[in-house]
Simulated scan of single mutants.
Amino acid sequence: MSNLVIIAKVLTAEDFAPFGDVLEVDGPPDKIINQGMCGRHHDLARLDFSEGRAGISLFDAKARTLPHTVDMVERHPDGSQAFIPVDGVPMLVVVADDADGEPVNLKAFVSQPGQSINLHRGTWHGVLAPLGGPGRYMVVDRIGDGANLEEHWFPAPYVVEAPES
């Protein structure tokens, strides 16, 4: 079987909306706080957890390159999952629609400076894949008992290629 090719796109809130939230500053702050010294861009992501609690973890991820092979995707049925770059390294974000428990219609996005993502609960997605160098990411997700991970391995891998210029 030959590889299936996906051309990555630049990450935009509109294109990513079916899978999650793009967290980025877009316009003036919603509130000015701290005696006028700080602007708050309020409530940018829909955190959604079943039983358990929100936790913040720090992930150190090795660099990936394009083209990038995707042989597996995963999802978290009990909670959303946000990825916030600490050191500004962009990431490749692979997501898929769900068809009766199976990932279909894979899409790939490349984050831009200042962007973070929040994957909706149950969204099929690829592994954390920093581009251009290793990356450190703050991750906000569900901490609790029970399995919160489903994996799907593809019979033939997908290959993500760089966005068209």
Rank of each mutant, 00 (worst) to 15 (best):
M1P: 09
S2K: 14
N3V: 11
L4I: 12
V5I: 13
I7Q: 15
A8W: 03
A8Q: 05
A8Y: 02
V10W: 11
V10E: 14
V10Y: 06
L11V: 00
L11S: 05
T12W: 12
E14C: 05
E14H: 10
D15C: 03
F16A: 01
F16H: 04
G20A: 10
D21Y: 02
V22A: 06
V22N: 05
L23E: 07
E24F: 00
D26E: 13
P28W: 04
P28Q: 11
P28D: 14
P28S: 10
P29G: 02
D30N: 14
D30K: 05
I32M: 15
I33P: 02
Q35N: 13
Q35E: 14
G36R: 03
G36D: 03
M37H: 08
R40Q: 08
H41W: 15
D43V: 05
L44W: 00
L44H: 00
A45I: 06
A45R: 08
L47M: 14
L47E: 08
D48Y: 03
F49W: 12
F49I: 15
S50V: 10
E51V: 13
G52F: 10
G52P: 03
R53D: 02
R53Q: 07
R53W: 00
A54F: 03
A54K: 01
I56G: 01
I56V: 13
I56N: 00
S57C: 00
S57R: 10
L58I: 15
F59W: 01
D60H: 14
A61K: 04
R64E: 03
T65P: 01
T65E: 14
T65I: 09
T65C: 04
L66R: 12
P67F: 07
P67L: 11
H68L: 10
V70F: 00
D71K: 11
D71C: 12
V73Y: 01
V73S: 03
E74C: 04
P77M: 09
S80W: 03
F83Y: 10
P85Q: 08
P85A: 09
P85D: 09
V86Q: 09
V86W: 12
D87R: 11
G88I: 07
V89I: 14
L92C: 13
V93Q: 09
V94W: 02
V94E: 06
V95Q: 11
D97C: 04
D98L: 03
A99P: 03
A99S: 14
P103V: 05
N105V: 07
N105S: 15
L106N: 09
K107I: 02
F109E: 01
F109S: 01
V110I: 14
P113Y: 10
P113E: 06
P113T: 05
G114C: 06
Q115T: 02
N118K: 07
H120F: 15
G122K: 05
T123N: 02
H125A: 10
H125K: 06
V127M: 11
L128P: 05
P130S: 03
L131R: 05
G132A: 08
P134G: 11
Y137I: 05
M138R: 07
M138T: 13
V139R: 04
V140E: 02
D141L: 02
R142M: 08
R142F: 09
D145C: 04
D145N: 13
G146V: 12
G146S: 09
N148G: 02
L149G: 00
L149W: 00
E150P: 00
E150F: 00
E151S: 12
W153T: 15
P155E: 13
P157I: 10
P157T: 10
V159F: 03
V160G: 07
A162W: 04
P163V: 04
P163D: 04
E164M: 11
S165E: 13
